[in-house]
């Protein structure tokens, strides 16, 4: 049986998921070397939504994200060596070392910034959408959020304004059930769906399985089309799960805040082998293509880490510069 989604798009999503995971596994493998000296939040296990979004967004679209942003940055086309160098605190990093893993930016591809305060970029994304509307520019703004963002006041404030002005915003909510070690049930009322809350605020909302990235693509594509055609802000909730610890390279099921059994259930729903298997069954996955893609990704990652390692640290003078523009900076 042939899936309705174009097989080229499907392979694009598959390749992105494989690439994102490989990058993050390489980070995890080397994190113990103590050279990446910043808090680092990995998306391993929950690459599906990012890859699906990456296939939906075009070059004119913008994106913002939060603390767990590697996957979003990469799916939007962000520069890989600059990201790795940033995590290494190097001058060649995308934020010249000032930001680290949690402050990624690549405006050349429309990735406008990720920040470390939960909900912090939600209004920034809405403001970017306002600028598109005022300047009559095409495109939309994708705001990557997690389930905890629906606990912040700024989400409601921002969503309300986006709805009033019918701004071209696509909220993509990765619901991975945990905020650090706090499960959803201690943070939000039982039985209250995130997408219902979003709908009540005035967003057009839908929800689906983030670990079925082709299904996620369908939801995201319809939502993005609506946002682009002036229907106002959209919200897509995608269920998924992070495998590793909240922050850092390890697994943390031993801590006891979630069960090994729960982790195993989600691991069995790994989006990568699942899509691979589906494409194989549809005759849409050429083993040679896959082998070549995996080799390219391996080489690209090796090169990115080599670049980061070889790059210089920022000049110490930069510790106290870039705080103001040139016209203000000469003043103390």
């Amino acid at each position: 049986m042939v899936h309705p989604l174009d097989s080229g798009v499907s392979r694009h999503i598959l390749r992105d998921m494989i690439r994102i995971r490989a990058v993050e596994e390489a980070i995890a493998d080397r994190y113990g070397e103590q050279k990446m000296r910043c808090p680092t939040h990995l998306s391993i296990g929950q690459e599906g939504p990012a890859a699906a979004v990456g296939a939906v967004l075009g070059p004119e679209d913008l994106a913002v994200s939060g603390h767990r942003a590697h996957a979003h940055y990469l799916a939007k086309g962000g520069d890989l060596p600059a990201m790795i160098a940033e995590i290494y605190g190097k001058a060649t990093g995308c934020s010249r070392g000032n930001g680290g893993s949690m402050h990624l930016v690549d405006e050349a591809v429309g990735f406008m910034g990720s920040t470390a305060i939960v909900g912090g970029t939600v209004p920034v994304g809405v403001g970017l959408a306002l600028s598109l509307a005022v300047r009559r520019k095409p495109g939309l703004v994708c705001i990557f959020i997690g389930d905890a963002v629906l606990e912040t006041g700024v989400f409601y404030e921002s969503a309300g304004f986006a709805a009033v002005r019918k701004l071209p915003v696509l909220f993509v909510c990765e619901n991975n059930l945990y905020s650090v070690y706090s499960p959803l049930e201690v943070r939000q009322p039982a039985g209250r769906a995130l997408s219902d809350v979003a709908a009540a605020v005035g967003l057009q909302a839908s929800s689906g399985d983030g670990n079925d990235p082709r299904a996620a693509y369908g939801l995201l594509k319809s939502a993005a089309d609506r946002a682009r055609s002036g229907d106002g802000p959209q919200f897509v909730e995608l269920a998924t799960y992070r495998w590793r610890e909240h922050c850092g390279p390890l697994f943390d099921n031993d801590l006891g805040y979630r069960s090994e059994a729960e982790y195993l259930v989600w691991k069995a729903r790994d989006p990568i082998p699942r899509l691979m298997q589906e494409l194989r069954e549809e005759g849409a996955l050429d083993p040679a293509w896959l082998a070549a893609a995996e080799a390219e990704i391996r080489a690209e990652i090796e090169a990115a880490f080599a670049f980061a390692e070889a790059s210089p640290f920022p000049d110490p003078v930069l510790a106290s510069t870039d705080i103001y523009s040139r016209e203000i900076a000469p003043f103390p």
Binding site: V122, P123, V126, G127, L128, L130, S131, R135, S158
Partner: peptide, 17 residues
């Protein structure tokens, strides 16, 4: 919504306004 509308201003500024 003072907090959001400040962030909206930041985003709008980043978008060229």
């Amino acid at each position: 919504a003072e907090n959001a509308m400040t962030g909206v201003g930041i985003g709008a500024a980043l978008g060229g306004l």
